[in-house]
Design a protein around this nucleic acid. Structure first.
Lengths: 168, 168
DNA sequence: ACAACTGGTTGCAAAATAAAATCAGTTGTC
DNA sequence: GACAACTGATTTTATTTTGCAACCAGTTGT
């Protein structure tokens, strides 16, 4: 973005993240630990197109929300990582999850993580941000993994829903 | 929206609010107390076009985030108001303001409100939400007006910046 | 040598967006 | 009652973004 509509902080945040896909990409890197182009392309529920994903990654790297480094094991691969500004989006994403859970027709599987994050509150968010700083910025690992808790809860609910289905 | 990309709460929130203008409109109703089409059209810093504003208002009313009632003093005018779901966006907007203030080239005048709201924390947000429920939903007025505090701080900073300019 | 996989580009049609002009109903003023 | 100004839109036109499919060249494991 070369020209800003205004100096309002909400507006400027919206100029970077106010579209249908940018926060989806960040969500998948953050909660799904997707680090490669192909992972983001295929693991996402919403089915982003490859050209859109390429454009969004470029924008987010340019905006300083994502880092892009070479994968030593595969010369062509790039590893995407969250920068500190992106990690500081955790409270916004947590609130968005909580809002969506209250006011939108969410599915149980995909909202269990938002529920845990809402119940955990800012204290859990801080723990999660510390973990993201470990994964993406190489800082020391926290004792407890929030990501593992979220993933375990997700898998538990998926299994429950699967059991419910087969009982029909 | 007739079809949802996924049942993820973040995605569903994004499907409603994930564009360049919807949250700008809500911001101006919420913090600027703009209640009429023309107010939203002209008072906004960003210069929204009338057709986009009309489309966004329609969408937001349809999505249940805004209410639309006739103005008794002017047969043609409509009054827009926030619904409870929209009022619950306060924490998200507060966080977005805080994020923008940290990571974007904000102006001092337009970020003083975000600063106060950040410093006030969730306690101030709750007070603000109570005030919005008074203004938009007819609930009893809280003793202290957050909106007045924000507006006073804004005017003070505008005056300061004005003084700085004339001293050059 | 070869098939599968990597991140990414290209072309094209459809949809969303933006700005400007226009519109008809309402209001206040004379 | 004539009339200009204002209301919330709609229409028109142009630009940008999106979605989809095909394609590409470099890399890897067999």
């Amino acid at each position: 973005m070369d020209h800003h509509r205004s100096g309002c902080p909400i507006n400027l945040t919206l100029e970077i993240l106010g579209d249908r896909w940018s926060l989806i990409v960040i969500r998948d890197i953050m909660f799904g630990n997707c680090r490669y182009f192909r992972e983001l392309l295929t693991k996402s529920e919403e089915g982003i197109a490859s050209n859109i994903l390429a454009a969004r990654l470029k924008n987010l790297v340019a905006a300083g929300l994502l880092g892009k480094t070479d994968d030593p094991s595969h010369r062509q691969k790039s590893i995407y990582s969250l920068t500190e500004p992106a990690i500081q989006l955790v409270p916004i994403l947590a609130h968005m999850g909580a809002w969506g859970r209250r006011h939108a027709p969410v599915s149980r599987e995909l909202s269990i993580r938002a529920q845990l994050l809402e119940e955990g509150g800012p204290k859990m968010w801080d723990g999660f941000m510390a973990e993201l700083r470990h994964i993406h910025l190489g800082q020391p690992a926290p004792v407890k993994s929030v990501l593992a808790q979220l993933q375990a809860a997700y898998l538990r609910v998926v299994a429950e829903e699967q059991a419910k289905k087969t009982n029909d």
